[in-house]
Amino acid sequence: MQNKIFDAENCVRTFGHGKKIVTAVDDVTFDIKDGEIVSLVGGSSCGKSVLAKMMLGLHKPTSGNFLYKGKPITDHKAHWREVQSVFQDPFSCFNQFFTIRSQLKAAFGIYKEKPSNAEMEERVDESLMAVNVKPSEIEGKYPFELSGGQMQRMLLARIFVLRPQVLIADEPTSMVDACVRANILDYLMKLKKELHMTIVFITHDIGLAYYVSDRLFIMHKGKIVEQGSPEEVTTKPKSEHTVQLLEDIPDVNREWIKKK
C-alpha cells in the first residue's frame, strides 16, 4: 500500500505582479508516495527551491492544488511536526550564540508536548550516535568550533531527533567536498531505511540524484520536463534539458569539454 504524501495538480507559483511577474513554478503535476526518495534536479533558478518551500508550507501555490496527505497545508506547526528540512549551508543554520547541543534540544519546541528532560537528552545522544558523532565531541561546543562536514551532520542529527515523516533536503551536499558528500548520502539512506522516511532531495547534480533516488524529476524554468526512474532518465533521457544536465557533469570516464 502506498499512500500519497504530496499531490500537486497544475500547481503554479508566481512572484510579483503586473509586468514584473515571474513564474517560478509553472503548471507542475506530480505526486510523491510514502517512503520514496524523489530528487528534484535542475540548474539554478529552475524553480526547485520554490517547490521545496511549497512542500514545507512556506509558499502557497498561486493556482492549482497542492495537497499534503490529501489536504492543503494550513497549520504550519502541525505540518512541521511531520515535514522537516535540512538546508544547504550548515554554518548559517545554527545560532552562533548557543551550544549545538542546546539547539538540537530546541528542535523539540515543535512538539505539542515536550518529552521529559531526561528523555530529550537521551534522544539527542542517540541522534548524535546515529550520525557517528560521540556526544562528548560536541559537548559545550558552539557552531563555529566545528568543521563544515561536522556541521552538516548536526543538521542531520536534528532530523534524527525529530524523526519527521518527510524530509526536504535542499542541496545538503553542494557546500561540502566529496568525502563529506558520500557520508551525508549514507545518512540519508539510513533515515529512509531505519525510520521509513520519505525524502525529497533537491540538487543540481544529476549524478548524485541518480545514486540516491527512487524517482527523478528534472526541472527547467519552473516546469518538470521529465520524470522517471533513475535508470530510465539517465540512460534514455527524453528531454533535451536532461541530456544537457547529464553532459554538464565532468565525469572521469566521459569526454567533457576538450582543451584546444
Binding site: 566529496a178 568525502c179 558528500r181 558520500a182 544529476i206 549524478g207 545514486y211 539517465t234 540512460t235 565525469d251
Partner: peptide, 15 residues
C-alpha cells in the same frame, strides 16, 4: 566519487 554512468549505482561511494 559518484558517477551517473550506467551500472555505477551498485558501486557504493565510500566515505
Amino acid at each position: 566519487m559518484l558517477s551517473a554512468d550506467e551500472g555505477q549505482k551498485s558501486r557504493k561511494p565510500t566515505a
